[in-house]
Amino acid sequence: MRRAGGFVVLGSACLASLASAEIPLDQRKSGADFISAATRAMQEDDTANPAMLSTLDGESMWNEKAGGAQKSCGDCHGPAPKSMKGVAARYPAYNVARQAPVDLSGQINACRTDQQKAEAFKPESAQLLALSAYIGSQSRGLPVSPPDDARLASFRARGEALWSQRIGQLNFSCAQCHDDNWGKRLGSALIPQAHPNAYPIYRLDWQGMGSLQRRFRNCMSGVRAEAYPYGAQEFIDLEVFLAHRARGMPVETPGVRP
């Protein structure tokens, strides 16, 4: 489906606040609090959640041998419910070999190439989303727990700077919408606080799964900014910052959004 890009109502006085303020910890709300009861019910019932189809694909893939090494994820890690419990809640994490943080998709692809000796999955591919959803769902209900790792600090700071920087023809920062105006209406949608704790999600409008970066790209096009490519360092930095901002909130992966 293709629609004219851009947020529906903008440039308006409705989003007037100037100085951005961090949301106090006890006022944080999950994205599920900003969707309709029907969509939320879909997310909360595994027999009705359309993201479960992808999650189950991920479960099958976990045990499929692949690549030059002919090893499955499970061959090295054992059953995911045990080995992957709480893992997604800690990502992005610092990766020594790459001397940079990697997000969960990046780690999955690192194992694809370095361990399985297979080709990396493409961004937003069904396989990468399925494995991310499956691994993510092993952290369901656990708190978002970004590592207390000094090596992440500079990346987080860069992410925060990007968050607050005005971008696009509409000249809005992420913070102006998500810190200062959450809960207000933008067109028909409520502006959520932009927490990453349900990703990857099934979006009804996409008629399929999508990653947090796809959501970032949507918001960037919404303010008529040129979106960074998938996997861009800027996106990883934003993810590091958003994980910190959502620390302690329960993981809800895989979420459902309109």
Binding site: F7, V8, L186, I191, D205, N218, S221, G222
Partner: peptide, 10 residues
């Protein structure tokens, strides 16, 4: 039916 605020550009 209402339309979502964010439209995908790709």
């Amino acid at each position: 039916v209402t339309l979502p605020a964010c439209a995908e550009d790709a």
